[in-house]
Amino acid sequence: MAVGGCSGPLSTLDAAGPAAARVASFWWAMLAGATALSLLVFVLLLLAFLRRGREGRTSPTLWIGGLGVAMPIVVLLALVGYALMLGERIIAPGLSGTVVIDATARQWSWEFSHRTGEGMQVTHNELHMPAGQAVVLRIAAVDVIHSFWVPRLAGKMDAIPGHVNVLRIQAERPGVYDGQCAEFCGSGHSGHLFRVIAHDEAGWAAFQRGETR
C-alpha cells in the first residue's frame, strides 16, 4: 500500500518485508476503524448541543450498556483476536532451515556474526543477508540495553545484556535497508545506526565466500 507521503528510508509504512507489510496493512485497517469510531463520538457530542431544548431523558442502558459496553466489546474482541493471530505468525516462528546471524550491540556500534561455509564472518554496522528468505537474528548486548530495528523490514527487538532475543526478518528484494537502535542507550543513541544489505543469490554466495563487494 504505497501512499505518496509514506515512503522514506525508515518508514514503517514503506514495507519491504512480509512482517512490516502485514503490520502496515493492520495499521491502515485500524486507522479506518478508529476514524469511524471517533467520528461517531464526535457526532453524538455535536448532537447533544444541537438537540438542545428537545427534552426527554435517554436511558443509561442504551448509552452505557449499548454504546459503552456492547459496542466496544465487539470491536475489541475482533481486534485482539486478529492481533494475536498476526503475532503468532510474526513473533513465534520455527527456527529451522534458515540463516542464523548473531547481532551484538554495544555503545555505540553493532557487530554481526554470520556463520558461513568458510567459518565466521564478522562485520560492523552492516548486516548481510540473502533476500527473499527468512533470516533468524540472535540479538544480544554487551553493555546497556539497545534495540534492533529495521523499520522497513520488521518490528524491533531489544538487545538486553544477559539475555539473547530472537527476531526473524526477511527482505523481499535485494537492496539496502536502514536500521537504527530504538532503545535509548546514552549519548550516542541518535547515531547508533546500521545498514542491512540484502543480497541476491549471486551476491549472497559471494559474501559467504568472503568476497567483499
Binding site: 474482541l77 485482539v80 483476536g81 494475536l84 493471530m85 503475532g87 503468532e88 513473533i91 513465534a92 530472537v166
Partner: peptide, 13 residues
Amino acid sequence: VTGSPVALTSACA
C-alpha cells in the same frame, strides 16, 4: 478474555 492466550498462542517463544 485476558486468559484466552493460553489457548491461542505459543507459550514459550
